[in-house]
């Protein structure tokens, strides 16, 4: 019975298609080759990976750990005894640093190649600063036993004392061609029926975030068999380019009655105003109009977006949006 229900919960594809070795990591060749060098020369420092989500930070370190501790020449894998992974869903206050991490690193591995353990602190920017201060000492004291790899989105949230103990690697958003290739690979492996424009939509929604692309793909596949760009946008809850184009068309030509039209489109499609504004913003940047007018429009869009975030009434703010366009048009 239990297995019957359990089977249906699929493994997330982001886990399923995580690169197994360093050479499988699709992007960031300079980083992976540097790491390979460091491993080969037995000069592994403490590491800090930072960059936006879904750019391969965790994948890289997990792949590296597998390279280091995985089964080699028939010897069994040491992964579970040599690697401690902690992420934001685990409690990581100062006590964890004092107890769990210290216990793990203070016991020495006997005969192993490499002779150090690895502690991976994922989403390290959500660690409290007191925990980070406690970590500072642990990192130094047990250098002979263990290496730390901190992963975070914002380098600024890691205290300088830790930063100076680590070799830092910056992970840039993936180029869209890389996202596309990898997405296509997963589509092929999963035997999905995905239309060409749906792939483009996935890449567009992802914005260089590989995980987002795969997650959206999986969520869409869960909802429907034939994956089209419409289904992708519906899953992500973001307005599709067609809808945005229609709205901008309406804003660029219509009068104040555009308010009604926009509000009804938004309710029918279940769109949030701030997402709509973001979409419109992109289109406005590409409009063939005078730069000054564009600048004024962008400024107005920014104000309205800020208003929306302050929980203002959506309809009144749509009014503001329409007003901004009418006034901008008058400047042309």
């Amino acid at each position: 019975m239990a297995t019957g229900t359990e089977k249906k919960i699929q493994i997330p594809w982001v886990e399923k298609y995580r690169p197994a070795t360093l050479s499988d990591v699709v992007s960031h060749k300079s980083i992976t080759s540097t790491l390979t060098q460091l491993i080969a020369n037995q000069q592994m420092p403490h590491l800090m990976f930072y960059g936006p989500p879904g750019t391969g930070k965790t994948s890289t370190v997990v792949a590296m750990a597998r390279d280091l501790y995985g089964s080699k020449n028939g010897a069994p894998s040491n992964y579970s005894t040599m690697v401690l992974e902690l992420n934001a869903s685990d409690d990581r206050g100062i006590d964890t640093v004092r107890e769990q991490i210290r216990t793990f690193v203070s016991s020495r591995a006997i005969v192993h190649d490499p002779p150090y353990k690895l502690v991976i602190l994922d989403e390290a920017d959500s660690m409290t600063s007191t925990a980070q201060f406690a970590l500072r000492r642990v990192m130094e004291k047990y250098t002979s036993n263990a290496r730390f790899c901190l992963i975070c989105n914002y380098a600024g949230k890691i205290i300088p004392a830790i930063q100076s103990r680590c070799t830092k690697f910056r992970f840039k958003p993936l180029p869209s061609t890389v996202v596309r290739d990898r997405t296509l690979h997963v589509i092929e492996q999963e035997n999905l029926n995905v239309s060409e424009d749906a792939v483009a939509a996935l890449v567009r929604v992802a914005e260089g975030d590989m995980r987002k692309s795969l997650n959206t793909l999986q969520a869409t596949a869960m909802a429907t068999r034939d994956i089209t760009s419409t289904a992708v946008y519906e899953t992500s809850g973001l307005p599709s380019p067609e809808v945005v184009a229609e709205l901008v068309g309406c804003l660029m030509t219509g009068g104040v009655d555009a308010v009604q039209q926009i509000t009804s489109t938004m309710t029918m499609q279940g769109l949030a105003l701030s997402d709509v504004i973001q979409g419109i913003h992109e289109v406005v940047l590409n409009l063939a109009i005078d730069g000054t007018v564009k600048a004024v429009l962008c400024k107005d869009l920014a104000t309205i977006e800020d208003n929306v975030l302050h929980a203002c009434d959506e309809q009144l703010q749509v009014g503001g949006l329409v007003a901004a366009f009418i006034q901008a048009r008058a400047m042309l």
Binding site: G255, V256, D257, V259, I304, D306, N307, H310, A311, C312, D313, L316, Q317, G319, G320, L321, V322, A323, A324, I326, Q327, A330
Partner: peptide, 29 residues
Amino acid sequence: VIFDDMLLSDQAKAAILGRMALVDRNIQD
């Protein structure tokens, strides 16, 4: 009411809508 006022130009209507968005924000704050 303002939408229905045929005598009022779109420019003026727009200005008023813009002001309303601002007032809404101020009240929210």
